[in-house]
C-alpha cells in the first residue's frame, strides 16, 4: 500500500521535472535533497566532494527525468540509484582515495550509535526508529542500501554465510516496514491536528 503523501510527492516532482521547470529542481532539492545527500555522504565522506556529487546527481535527475520508467520502479528508487552510482563512480575514480570500504562494520555501527545520541529533537522519530531496529538488521540495510557492498562483501562484513544475506535482508526489511507503518500512523494522526 503506497503511502498517499509519498505518492503525491512523487507525482508532483515527476510532473515538474518532465515540464523542465526550474520549480522542479527546487522541489527536488527541498523534498529529496537531504535523502540524496545522505546516500552520497555514506559513500563519499569528504564534504566538498560530496557536494560536488550532489550537484551532479541533481542535474542528472533533472536532465534525464524522461528516461525514468514509471512501470519499473518508484521515482525515488530510480533517483537513489543514480545518487549511489554517482557516488561509487566518484570514489572509484582516480584522485579520490577510497576509505569508506576499508572501514570495518564496527565503524558503521559505532557511527549509528553516536548519530542517535547526538540527534536533534526534531529527529526524535528517526532516533526511536533506529533504536527499535536491531543493530544487525540496521547494519545489513545500511551496508546494502547505502554502501557499495555486494552480497559477498556484506556476508563477510557481518560474518554471515553467503546464502543468508538474502533472507537476513528480507527479515530486516520486514522489520523496517513494520516500524515505518507505526511511524506513519503516528505521523498521520499528528498531521490531522
Amino acid at each position: 500500500m503506497p503511502s498517499p503523501a509519498n505518492q503525491d510527492k512523487q507525482d508532483t516532482l515527476l510532473e515538474l521535472l518532465l515540464r523542465k521547470d526550474e520549480a522542479g529542481m527546487r522541489y527536488l532539492f527541498d523534498h529529496y535533497g537531504g535523502a540524496l545527500n545522505n546516500i552520497i555522504g555514506r559513500i563519499v565522506t569528504e564534504p566538498q566532494t560530496c557536494e560536488e556529487v550532489l550537484q551532479d546527481v541533481l542535474l542528472r535527475i533533472w536532465e534525464n527525468a524522461d528516461t525514468y520508467e514509471p512501470g519499473k520502479s518508484r521515482l525515488f528508487t530510480w533517483m537513489a540509484r543514480i545518487a549511489r552510482n554517482a557516488a561509487i563512480d566518484r570514489v572509484r575514480s582516480k584522485g579520490y582515495r577510497q576509505n569508506g570500504k576499508t572501514d570495518g562494520i564496527d565503524a558503521i555501527v559505532v557511527n549509528h550509535t553516536t548519530l542517535s545520541e547526538t540527534m536533534p529533537v526534531e529527529h526524535i522519530g528517526l532516533a526511536k526508529l533506529l533504536d527499535a531496529l536491531d543493530n544487525n538488521y540496521r547494519s545489513i540495510i545500511d551496508l546494502l542500501y547505502f554502501k557499495d557492498y555486494t552480497q559477498a562483501e556484506t556476508a563477510e562484513a557481518l560474518d554471515l554465510p553467503l546464502g543468508t544475506v538474502k533472507t537476513r535482508s528480507r527479515r530486516a526489511l520486514q522489520k523496517l516496514r513494520e516500524l515505518l507503518k507505526n511511524e506513519l500512523i503516528i505521523l498521520l494522526i499528528i498531521s490531522l491536528f
Partner: peptide, 22 residues
C-alpha cells in the same frame, strides 16, 4: 521500495543538503 524510501527520507533529515548546492 516505499520502506527504503521512507528510511532514506528519515535519514535524510539528518543531512540537509547545503543551500550552495541549490
Amino acid at each position: 521500495e516505499l520502506a527504503l524510501e521512507e528510511y532514506a527520507l528519515l535519514n535524510g533529515q539528518l543531512t540537509p543538503p547545503p543551500p550552495t548546492a541549490l
